[in-house]
Design a binder for these strands. Structure first.
Lengths: 212, 212
DNA sequence: TTTAAATGTAGAAACAATTCTACAACCTCA
DNA sequence: TGAGGTTGTAGAATTGTTTCTACATTTAAA
């Protein structure tokens, strides 16, 4: 490393074990790094606010907040912050969403230690890290013009409705929750089912287990 | 620690970061521990086979094998091996299953470092660790004489119907499939929901994912 | 061995979801 | 810049689901 000034890292993950592990690797890899740890959405934002963070390693699976929202909020505070998503979801499908939302790196928790080091290094040096796999997916989807994740064909309102169905809400409950008519909910349901080519809530749940 | 001989640990988790983190804590906590690491079902079994392991810290979320099966297999090799399940599933509901299957400890990954240390210590000293929460559940089920697996309270016909609901069938389809009236199906549905104390198909699916 | 609970089955009334249609607002690509 | 798709929204008619009640049969418990 050329860097002579110590770098600041923030590791945001709801599992203390994971925070420990990442911290250890960062300590091995960089010269006197400043390391901050956060276990919640709120802590993460606070720390980003108060400290000049260079690299944020972020699991987007917090108990207290929607994952994409975190990215948005952080981008408001410090738009050029380097963010590497580090998460356990096996499917790279997620990656694109987060990259779109402003992350510049994506690493799966199933990675090896070497990959982790590689990724951290690359993030610090070039501000980005994506695996070949994900690059390929981006290319493919660009060429075929089809969204990689079928859920991406849903509008945000449709996703909102879908999530409520998955929670087990009925049409009426959803209508009340969203302050729309139940017939509207039905229309959404139909569109969702059409787009995903499914026929019932059970399959919808399946879908979200896979992709969402 | 009274123990003078070094203890052998096996940390089986598909995330290297988690393995690292746990290993570090074990190193802090015990005197010259031997630490083995496994990232797959197969590796886990191999290492248990070849080395005299004292404590296995096991995430049951392997890509290459069913979670309960692992426990069975391990028990075959070394029946008295101390096994602590260490997993990310938030619901303690899982715990009982694994305890029944032969694990003697259960810890959630969302735990703090102190809890982790506590748990490891307890496993090494007494061979077991369960949180108060889970103890309460076991007691409750004993006192109320309700089965820990609520599915056992369903009659076979009810299970038959439940499975069809889970497949995404509606009342009518089920009625046709089973050659009964749709009102009958409704009655079954109601009884199932009552027995399992749930309110919708989404929860039913959840239930069968957990217990069925 | 009676008695109580659980099981498998429905009808009818009340209620909820689906279907089909429609429309305005927005977006987009040629 | 305008024609055609997408999105967010509903009404009305139809269809499906729930609720409540009921009853004969089987099973378990006192």
């Amino acid at each position: 490393m050329k860097t002579t000034q110590p770098l600041s890292f923030l590791i945001a993950d709801d599992h203390s074990i994971v925070r420990q592990g990442v911290a250890m690797i960062i300590k091995e890899l960089f010269f006197k790094p400043k390391i901050f740890l956060a276990g919640t959405f709120k802590e993460t934002l606070d720390i980003v606010h108060q400290n000049g963070i260079d690299l944020l390693v972020l699991d987007i699976n917090f108990p207290d907040g929607n994952s994409l929202k975190i990215l948005e909020e952080i981008k408001k505070i410090q738009p050029e912050l380097k963010i590497m998503i580090f998460t356990a979801y096996d499917e790279d499908i997620y990656a694109l969403r987060y990259l779109n939302a402003g992350a510049t790196g994506y690493l799966n928790k199933g990675c090896s230690e070497d990959e982790m080091k590689n990724a951290l290094n690359s993030m610090v040096l070039y501000g980005k890290y994506i695996t070949q796999n994900i690059k390929d997916k981006i290319l493919d989807s660009y060429i075929s013009k089809k969204p990689i994740n079928p859920l991406e064909s849903l509008s945000s309102r449709e996703i909102e409705v879908a999530r409520l169905f998955i929670k087990g809400y009925g049409n009426m409950e959803i209508a009340e929750t969203l302050n729309i008519k139940k017939s509207t909910v039905s229309t959404f349901k139909n569109r969702i089912f059409e787009k995903l080519e499914i026929n019932n809530i059970a399959e919808l749940i399946e879908f979200f287990n896979l992709y969402g």
